[in-house]
């Protein structure tokens, strides 16, 4: 084999490597014929990571983490909170009533601020799925009252968010976020088994 063909082989080899490698990386993608798709956010079979890069996924996680600080501290007089939403973005309450647009979102943040040192919105279980024009996601929220004067620390409430994300020139933003309070506990009292 001459030098040139060796090079060709090695290039093809790299190509195959990349192909095998990417197949390895995305082999979690759900085959449309798969009998066992993961339950998805919207109740559809999950499309796994098709369409989202690792950095997209990470940036969406960062957006959601930033939300907690923005709403609890009301930083920059509510403007940080509003800046997490797309220009036409909206926050919706449990009934679906929307607070839409920058000014309304700033006002919402000002009403809800708890102080620069407050930690109230604890958000976990962030599931993200790509869609044809962005991504959707959901998280659990637990609201904790901690360090409020002499009152004992306690759980104020919780539930989950349902989000629609859009990639803007400034990065990923909320297009819509709705909060649904937790309800319908199956436990009359503490007898549920751990699972």
């Amino acid at each position: 084999m001459n030098v040139r063909s060796t090079r060709v082989v090695s290039i093809i080899g790299v190509g195959v490597l990349a192909l095998a490698w990417s197949a390895h990386a995305v082999s979690g993608q759900v085959d449309p014929t798969s009998p066992r798709p993961l339950a998805s956010v919207a109740g559809k079979p999950a499309a796994s990571f098709a369409g989202l890069t690792a950095l997209d996924y990470i940036e969406i996680k960062q957006l959601v983490s930033r939300y907690a600080y923005a709403v609890d501290t009301g930083a920059d007089n509510g403007n940080v909170y509003a800046s997490l939403f797309a220009p036409d973005g909206a926050f919706a309450d449990r009934t679906g009533r929307e607070t839409k647009g920058r000014e309304a979102l700033v006002a919402l943040a000002r009403r809800n601020t708890r102080g620069p040192q407050s930690a109230f919105h604890f958000i976990v279980n962030h599931v993200i799925e790509p869609t044809s024009d962005g991504a959707v996601g959901k998280e659990y929220l637990v609201q904790l009252r901690i360090g409020e004067g002499e009152k004992p620390n306690d759980i104020f409430g919780g539930g989950h968010y349902e989000d629609v994300y859009v990639k803007t020139p400034d990065g990923w933003r909320f297009k819509r976020r709705q909060f649904m309070p937790s309800e319908g506990s199956p436990r009359p009292r503490r007898e549920a088994e751990a699972r």
């Binding site: 604890f122 659990y140 539930g159 989950h160 309070p181 319908g184 506990s185 199956p186 436990r187 549920a192």
Partner: peptide, 16 residues
């Protein structure tokens, strides 16, 4: 194991 008691689709408990 996951069926458990009757609960709401909005019930959120396992905080991971």
């Amino acid at each position: 194991l996951a069926r458990g008691g009757k609960r709401s689709p909005n019930f959120m408990s396992h905080w991971v």
